[in-house]
Each structure stands twice: as structure tokens, then as C-alpha cells.
Nucleic acid binder design. Structure first.
Length: 149
DNA sequence: CGCCTAACTCGGC
DNA sequence: GCCGAGTTAGGCG
């Protein structure tokens, strides 16, 4: 049984999906049918706090859907603190893969905010891309929000 | 410094 | 096989 809700935030609508008590997908956008649950409710509270700067890390029971390397990278991303950024190259070097591959993995990330793929930017300081997760514009919004702290 | 290019990895067609 | 995806380092003027 999959449950899902949408939450309105200052960067727009976010939808969260949950199954068996674990969040497995967080995406940008609003969905029509919603079914609440304890976990989703908890997530909602967290996200609201997050956007009020009352908490910096959203940790909630979740499931990482991916292969070994993807999980590795995502775990690495989770270590980036609120307001910080890292370049694709930095992460790539650490795991001995190509920066392109890092970007690709970020694109496969289904847990935006929880796995902060938006905190990974190009080495020259520009944003890079974000097309598969809602557009560069969204990335910009999130980063601007985090910078204001 | 700005612009161009080759190279990295992997999945999808 | 080629192409693209949230790159990058290096060369050239």
C-alpha cells in the first residue's frame, strides 16, 4: 500500500511517497489523490520546520532505491551540511568515478531535500543542471533559501 | 578570462 | 554503438 501527500512550501509544492512506513520518493510538484499516514505526517512537520530554519536535516525512515554506487554517493551527499555545497568533481575523485557519473546519479536521486543533490554544483561555482528533478530554477530557489540563514 | 574540446560512466534506444 | 546526463581540466588567443 503506497501512500502519498503533497506539501506546500516556499519553493513550491512537494510530494512525498511512502510504503511500509518508509519514504521512498520525494519530488517536486503537486499530486491529486492523497492518503496520509503517520510517517508522512511526521515528514510534513519536518519539512515545515526545515523551511522555517528550525531544523537543518530531515531524517525520516526512508528507503534508498539504487545500486551500490548510487547508495554510496547518496550517503555522501547526506553529509553535506545545510548551506554548504560541494562540486561534482570532489565527490567523483573520492569514489574514483567521473564527475559526469556523479551528475547522472544525482539525477536518479528520488529523495530531493533528504538527499541534498541540490547542494552539488559545478567546480566554477555555477549551478550546473537540475533538469531531471524540476529545473535549474528550482535548484536556485533551494540554494538561495539555504544561503539566507 | 572566456571559449572550445576531449574524456569519464552507464543505461536506453 | 551512439547519445545524453546536473562536469572538468587543459589548451589557445
Amino acid at each position: 500500500m503506497i501512500k502519498k501527500i503533497s506539501i506546500k512550501t516556499k519553493i513550491g509544492w512537494i510530494s512525498v511517497f511512502e510504503e511500509k512506513g518508509k519514504v521512498f520518493k520525494i519530488q517536486f510538484g503537486k499530486i491529486k489523490k492523497q492518503t496520509n499516514s503517520l510517517v508522512l505526517n511526521a515528514f510534513k512537520q519536518k519539512i515545515k520546520k526545515f523551511f522555517k530554519y528550525q531544523t537543518t536535516n530531515i531524517n525520516i525512515p526512508h528507503k534508498l532505491l539504487g545500486n551500490r554506487i548510487q547508495k554510496k554517493i547518496w550517503n555522501e551527499l547526506k553529509k553535506i551540511n545545510f548551506g554548504n555545497t560541494k562540486s561534482y568533481g570532489t565527490i567523483a575523485k573520492k569514489y574514483n568515478i567521473s564527475p559526469r557519473y556523479v551528475g547522472k546519479i544525482c539525477g536518479q536521486n528520488k529523495l530531493m531535500l533528504l538527499v541534498p543533490c541540490h547542494r552539488v554544483i559545478k567546480s566554477d561555482g555555477s549551478l550546473g543542471g537540475f533538469t531531471s528533478v524540476g529545473g535549474v530554477n528550482l535548484k536556485k530557489k533551494i540554494l538561495e533559501f539555504e544561503k539566507k540563514i
